[in-house]
């Protein structure tokens, strides 16, 4: 029987720190992505190969989405949004590896992602609008909205956690149940569906991150007109 996804058992201990399966899987994903990045950087050329073309396509798609949502230069936000998208995508698809459980099927990983996005939202908001300017946005349209806006910051982070966790965990859970009941090849359609779900969830998480950061840096997601013009010309 499949164990509960809400309970993490440490694989080993490093001193007092318990190392669980999602952490190890995440390290593996980090290693793969790092190796991919190093290899790609070593072979970058003005005439790109297929792998470089694919990486450039993904990078330009991320930049395009950031520009569309934030109406700003995507460079400062590319690392955060790109890393969130690539990590969630690879993590979700890691379930195709036999015996591998995606880290995003655990609350801790999703919560870490959401906390990083929340912290980045506050960081970019303060950096663009200043401390007073950023916190003044919580009083929009009136002071009475401050509690609701603060609550919104928490609830939307929580919604991101639950959405990602629920979709991925349910997929893993269903595949595990079907695998235990039906046999070796029966879960394949469900695994294919998980691929689609994993890609969609990675896209949704990245886009929501852009939207939240955009609301923080532009003030209620209302970008300045000069920024509109700047990106319309590119």
């Amino acid at each position: 029987m499949t164990r509960s996804p809400l309970i993490l058992e440490p694989l080993f201990m490093i001193g007092p720190v318990p190392i669980t399966r999602p952490v190890v899987t995440t390290w593996a994903i980090m290693a793969v992505l790092t190796l991919f990045g190093l290899l790609l950087r070593a072979h970058l050329a003005n005439r790109p190969g297929k792998l470089q073309s694919a990486a450039e396509l993904v990078t330009e798609a991320i930049d395009h989405q950031i520009s569309e949502v934030l109406q700003r230069d995507p460079a400062p936000y590319r690392a955060l949004v790109g890393t969130v998208f690539l990590f969630i995508l690879v993590a979700n698809w890691s379930s195709l590896m036999p015996g591998t459980e995606p880290p995003t099927a655990t609350l801790e990983t999703d919560a870490a992602l959401a906390l990083i996005v929340l912290a980045s939202t506050i960081w970019f908001g303060i950096r663009v609008q200043g401390v007073a300017g950023y916190f003044a946005t919580f009083a929009q349209p009136s002071w009475a909205m401050i509690p609701l806006n603060l609550l919104e910051q928490i609830t939307r982070a929580f919604s991101m956690i639950v959405r990602l966790f629920g979709n991925i965990m349910s997929g893993v859970f269903v595949v595990g149940i079907v695998l235990s009941l039906a046999g070796l090849l029966v879960p394949i359609p469900l695994m294919a569906l998980d691929l689609l779900t994993g890609a969609v969830q990675a896209y949704i998480f990245a886009i929501l991150s852009c939207v939240f950061i955009g609301a923080a840096v532009n003030g209620e997601n209302d970008p300045p007109q000069d920024e509109h013009r700047k990106w319309d010309t590119t």
């Binding site: 790609l40 950087r41 690392a79």
Partner: peptide
């Protein structure tokens, strides 16, 4: 996981996104 993600963010920024954007 938060630390891992921050480290991954730094690594990808340095070894993937920035070189690709530069090229």
């Amino acid at each position: 996981q938060a630390i891992n993600l921050l480290v991954l963010m730094w690594i990808l920024s340095r070894f993937l996104f920035r070189p690709i954007a530069q090229i």
